[in-house]
Design a protein around this nucleic acid. Structure first.
Length: 333
DNA sequence: CGACTCATCCGCCATC
DNA sequence: CAGATGGCGGATGAGT
């Protein structure tokens, strides 16, 4: 969230990922509203916003969304751009909705890509960033690791698309029915890379605690190993194993946050056979050891700002797809 | 941390 | 002919 950015735009991802649709079977997300710059953020009509999280929260996110940007100088602050690039490099899905595409462009994440942008923003975007091509027809574009939308209303579609892609059509439909007027039975949106791939992803998320190998996921998607690799990278922006590793770390982070389980136990619960593997990957992804991560969060939890909320890092349990045996850790999940 | 094994994944290429 | 597919093999890196 940014100072002087439109309230409507800023609220879009909060509306989608913060919607409480658990009763209709939607997954719960841990939504981490992040202040993109320090200080109080003033929005449309003088409304003042205060985001409970700082930039370091980007390291814990599976999806990072820039919902808006202001029209005036100065540009996005460099620490934010660094954090965005780092999250992207570590496999997070990055989305720029409406004016938020300027934030992604400033971070260099749109170079050489075709993106969606509203007619108001398209000329300025292409002038300031010659490497970026705007598709004037697109409401939103999923480019695998980067999603863009033309304006905040299409931003709702883009967010629902992300939900569908990562958590399945049922999840998207459950959320959509609360915020859009009419939805087709499929959730109103076509899958990114084909239902087969989505199914394999949903299966993997529901069985993170098992030892999954890429060959088995390919079989589940009814694709050859080679084609699965290719399609996966095109759709998700990372190799299957890289993606799997990041999902495992995200879940481990939650277990570290919400439980007192030992690192050894957590490692097994998220699909590592030993804690050594978890520790090594954990440090590479988040920069700290699991223990340090846990204690730093415990320190922060003492502050009044920490919400009891949920995480946009994504609860990986598409209803139905994960099966009855899907793990449901702790109360803070 | 180092040594070891083996899965992964990407370029290449024939084929569909 | 263009584009997608899938097998092969080796460098790489993940896991133990």
């Amino acid at each position: 969230m940014f100072d002087q950015a439109p309230m409507f735009d800023t609220s879009v991802p909060v509306g989608v990922f913060g919607a409480d649709c658990a009763a209709s079977g939607a997954p719960k997300f841990r939504l981490l509203p992040v202040a993109g710059e320090p200080g109080m953020l003033t929005s449309t009509g003088g409304v003042q916003l205060r985001a409970p999280h700082a930039l370091d929260a980007l390291r814990r996110a599976g999806v990072v969304i820039a919902p808006s940007w202001r029209s005036r100088q100065p540009g996005p602050p460099e620490p934010l751009l660094r954090a965005l690039r780092q999250a992207h490099g570590e496999g997070a899905l990055i989305a720029g909705l409406g004016s938020g595409v300027f934030v992604l462009a400033a971070a260099g994440l749109l170079d050489g890509r075709k993106v969606a942008a509203s007619c108001r923003h398209a000329p300025g975007l292409m002038t300031a960033y010659p490497g970026v091509t705007v598709d004037p027809e697109a409401l939103f574009i999923d480019d695998g690791d980067v999603v863009t939308s033309a304006g905040p209303v299409a931003g709702v579609d883009a967010c629902l698309h992300i939900v569908q892609r990562m958590w399945g059509a049922d999840a998207a439909a459950a959320i959509a029915c609360g915020i859009t007027p009419a939805v087709r039975p499929d959730g109103g949106r076509a899958p990114v890379a084909g239902g087969a791939l989505d199914e394999a992803v949903a299966y993997a998320l529901g069985h993170l605690d098992d030892t999954l190998d890429v060959g088995a996921l390919a079989m589940r998607a009814h694709l050859s190993r080679r084609t699965f690799d290719r399609r996966f990278r095109a759709a998700v922006g990372a190799s299957p194993l890289q993606w799997l590793g990041r999902q495992r770390i995200l879940r481990a982070q939650r277990l570290l946050e919400d439980t007192d389980l030992t690192v050894e136990v957590i490692a097994r619960q998220v699909g590592f056979t030993t804690a050594v593997s978890l520790r090594r990957l954990f440090r590479r992804v988040s920069g700290v050891s699991p223990q340090d991560y846990r204690s730093s969060l415990r320190d922060k939890a003492a502050l009044p700002l920490e919400p009891a909320g949920r995480s946009l890092t994504g609860d990986p349990h598409p209803p139905g797809a994960a099966g009855p045996a899907a793990p449901r850790p702790g109360p803070g999940w």
